[in-house]
Design a protein around this nucleic acid. Structure first.
Lengths: 325, 325
DNA sequence: CTGAAAGCGCTTACAG
DNA sequence: CTGAAAGCGCTTACAG
């Protein structure tokens, strides 16, 4: 069966193809009578007409696709929530959010001109050359979404995570703090910011800088880290995330060190397992819908679309206090 | 700056536009001299020419996009690995793998004709009406990728997961088994298959059917489930995934029940936290690259492309035995 | 191999 | 409002 085109709709509605286009694009500069409008929409519905994205993109020189470039970053519930919210908010404004995994030798320069995206959204940091090339063709680019620069605009400063952890521990009376950093280099973009936030908070509170120890997700690593902190007189640790925190709990258990009596621990992400640990893990929960909505609003502005009617987002972070601190 | 087109390349290389197209599409039915071929490729490179996806799609009536429809399923490392592998293998064969989140009122009927995909890949189960409509236009459709039907073709039968768990516990001498099912309805597609595999394995081994108890990710739920199993004489439990398993460990701990002495537990996913639990959790690790590569091969066949040169994938599942069983 | 041309389905000036 | 037409950039018969 042949594809239904605007021509077919025009014929069925007894109008010209131009009128169909005007109605479908809701062009304010054309005066279309209500009757005509309804006839067109009725024909569209009856025939099951869907405009060809390819033809429209070709003609306009630009699609309604938001091309989201995802580097090799670890999965997380927060990131997934971020993507879904972004998809939904942009989708409601007529932009199709498309995710592309960019590792594995994909050449960016060969990709984006092929797609004619309305906006390119890079979760990682783009090559300067790539970024320059994209901008030069007038395609809106939001670079380094997860990085420290675009941060304020997106409603979630990862530094706030570290800040929140440190202030919580300080409020509990701890003065000598540790920071459980992560080894995985794929986390670097976010990890650096969280640590900065923790260090800055210590400074602001007049505490010595936290003793930073890298931890991977093994019991041995947790054990070693806890040993180093106790030797340094550290009584409380902010961990990069819940898994690091759980490795620390494992280490403390192996050393027979009471948590939170001898060592308090606070994680990030509030994973389901946080509540299952012993002691249950205090954690910073991230509501990714907040920065995602903020970012979507920014993108809509870049694309020249009206802002979404979204409800006002609440706070992006929430401290969930449990037994480990 | 205006876009570089095939016309520009033709002029620069001193050939016709048709020749440019022939060279770029490597058409075997045209005899192109090596010199001409090189001249064209050189001009392409020099001008930074990238074919317009929109124009090509419009002309061909079909793009090189594989439209992957993702319903609201929980994140997991395995699923992420699945997506990345799929993207990479298909990408190497010239298909662009694009992921779309389909919850939130997105109307599928309005989407796919817009995109002109080469293949539609639905991770969830499609409406019969939608599926029929897609197939009718001749667009290749792989439906219900995560479901039980397409399974064999994709190299990973989720039932094997349950089977592996049960056989491991039986080999440890357990005869009265429990199954820790999950409450989250978003897991239903996969959960049903794993449970079936466990039940089938029990049958094959001549054991009574496992006592199925639903568990959510809370300590209370784990506690209650363990209580019910001990009352029923169950000595070993296969859990839907590691989080359920950790909830069970938490319940056993609360009841003072020795693991694995009084209750053996085996999870699925081999999350990093599995090794951090106490006792460390036995788990089934899933290598999603295996089914992803199989699926990619299937898609390439549907799209009429040659199979990838990929290395032969190993086994999709591996049992990681730790202290909990 | 070349060159000229059609046509994919749309949007958009343009003359009426 | 309508109708006829151009043109986005490509692929593909077609005649040479």
């Amino acid at each position: 069966m042949a594809r239904v085109t605007a021509r077919d709709v025009a014929r069925a509605a007894g109008v010209s193809q131009a009128t169909v286009s005007f109605v479908l694009n809701e062009r304010a500069d054309q005066s279309i009578s209500e009757g005509t409008r309804r006839a067109v929409l009725e024909a569209v519905h009856r025939l099951g007409y869907v405009p060809s994205g390819a033809a429209r993109s070709l003609r306009r020189g630009r699609s309604n696709v938001v091309l989201c470039l995802i580097p090799d970053i670890p999965v997380s519930q927060a990131m997934e929530e971020f993507r879904r919210t972004l998809s939904q908010v942009l989708g409601e404004s007529g932009l199709t959010c498309v995710f592309l995994h960019t590792e594995g030798g994909m050449r960016l320069a060969e990709l984006w001109p092929h797609v004619h995206p309305a906006v390119v959204l890079s979760f990682g940091r783009l090559d300067d050359a790539d970024a320059e090339q994209i901008r030069r063709t007038g395609v809106a680019l939001v670079d380094d979404v997860l990085g420290p620069n675009g941060v304020a605009a997106h409603g979630l400063d990862q530094a706030q995570v570290g800040d929140l952890q440190v202030r919580h521990l300080a409020a509990r009376g701890h003065t000598r703090l540790g920071y459980g950093a992560v080894v995985d280099p794929r986390e670097d973009a976010i990890a650096g910011q969280r640590l900065c936030g923790a260090e800055e908070a210590c400074r602001a509170l007049g505490l010595p800088a936290p003793v930073v120890v890298p931890v991977d997700y093994t019991p041995e690593s947790g054990l070693e880290a806890v040993g180093r902190w106790t030797a340094a007189g550290v009584t409380a640790v902010a961990a990069f995330n819940d898994i690091v925190a759980l490795a620390l709990l494992s280490g403390a258990r192996a050393l027979g060190l009471d948590v939170p009596g001898r060592l308090a621990v606070v994680g990030v992400d509030d994973l389901p397992v946080a509540a299952l640990a012993r002691p249950a893990l205090t954690s910073v929960a991230i509501h990714a819908t907040v920065p995602a909505t903020a970012l979507a609003t920014l993108i809509l502005a870049e694309a020249g679309k009206p802002a979404p009617a979204g409800s006002p987002p609440g706070p992006a972070l929430r401290l969930v206090v449990r037994g480990s601190s």
